[in-house]
Amino acid sequence: MICAYSTPAPRRRLRELVLGLVAVLSALPAAAASLTLASLAPRPLPAADAGFSVSWGGEHSKLSVNPLLAGAGQGVTLQVHGTVTGGFELDAGAGTVQRLAPGRWRWVAPGKAGAYTLEIRRHDGASMRFTALVTLPRQALRGGMLNGYLIGDYPSHPGGQKAYEPPAGFVEINDRTADLPLTPRLRLGQFVCKQEATGPRYVALRERLPLALEAALDRFARAGIASSGLTVMSGYRTPHYNSQLGDTRFSRHQWGDAADVFIDEDGDDRMDDLNGDGRLDQGDAQLLYRIVDAAQSDPDWQRFTGGLSAYPPNAYHGAFLHLDTRGFTARW
């Protein structure tokens, strides 16, 4: 099991900071430069419970906004759970919808990659929205490039574990789609890789990651740490960029189910003093670590099982929490 970084955190983060700065200062179009910076700050929407629960694929949620990923032409079944009283309807702006039963539909994604919206509405006005992201297939990669964007080659895991198979598809992020909400408090652009690019970027993303981060925010609030959102310091990394950082070869960031995050309510780009000891140090990240780690015993959290670590601050960044949903427990 690989569950530790091979490069010391301060050196690795310094390299990431420098690479990100180079990307911003390079002669990029304005939209591309602003997209790189979009990953640094949350722009929260009001957190909300839809008032009913829906399952799709291997996920389920009560959130008012959710991510849904599908390949072009792929069918996805959406099911309202609980007692389905009154009328529910599914409105899709694109693709086709087949009603299977009350509160149950099959949506077939459009044949063109892109971002679409689905909405399930109850007769009383309650609704749940999905940001439906239709991916470009992995087979579209040519020499490690996807429409001019360098992805690189995914490493072959010696154990042959399914969790390390290359992503099936990639989501395009551009200046129009960066602000799309994935959950009430997380946006698509927050997960963009920081490597230099002159056009649209592409990310691997698993729906479970933003759902887990949103659930973590709720856990923090129950523990007395209210936050309007999370700053995602590092989300997706292409294998090429991950290699540039000198990070471990099998970093979960490359598979789109890992994020390095912190809470920054005062806007200084560093983790806040969450434990109230008057210091900005690893103790603040450790507090978040303990809250998430304690959630492992809750059946509602167990689908988010994965890696967890609390990192200290250095001269270039504040403390942060690494969280991933790899499917098995890893701590370091």
Rank of each mutant, 00 (worst) to 15 (best):
L133P: 01
L133C: 04
V134Y: 06
V134D: 08
T135A: 10
L136H: 11
L136A: 08
L136S: 10
A140K: 05
A140D: 13
R142S: 15
M145R: 12
M145E: 15
L146G: 00
N147A: 14
G148C: 08
I151F: 06
D153F: 04
Y154V: 07
H157W: 12
P158C: 08
G160E: 14
K162H: 13
E165N: 07
P166T: 01
P167T: 08
P167I: 10
A168V: 13
A168K: 13
F170E: 05
F170K: 00
V171K: 02
V171W: 02
E172D: 01
E172N: 03
T177N: 05
A178I: 11
A178S: 07
D179G: 06
D179A: 14
D179E: 12
L180V: 11
L180A: 06
L180C: 01
P181L: 10
P181H: 07
P184F: 06
R187H: 06
L188H: 02
Q190P: 02
F191W: 04
F191A: 05
V192I: 15
V192S: 11
K194N: 14
E196T: 14
R201G: 12
Y202K: 00
V203H: 03
A204R: 00
L205Y: 00
L205V: 07
R206W: 06
R208Y: 00
P210I: 04
P210Q: 03
A215D: 13
A216S: 12
F220A: 06
A223M: 12
A223H: 12
A223G: 02
A223L: 09
A226N: 11
A226T: 14
A226L: 14
S227N: 12
G229Q: 13
G229S: 09
L230N: 04
V232C: 10
M233S: 15
M233G: 14
G235N: 04
Y236H: 11
T238I: 03
T238H: 03
S243Q: 09
Q244Y: 03
L245A: 02
L245W: 01
G246M: 07
R249N: 04
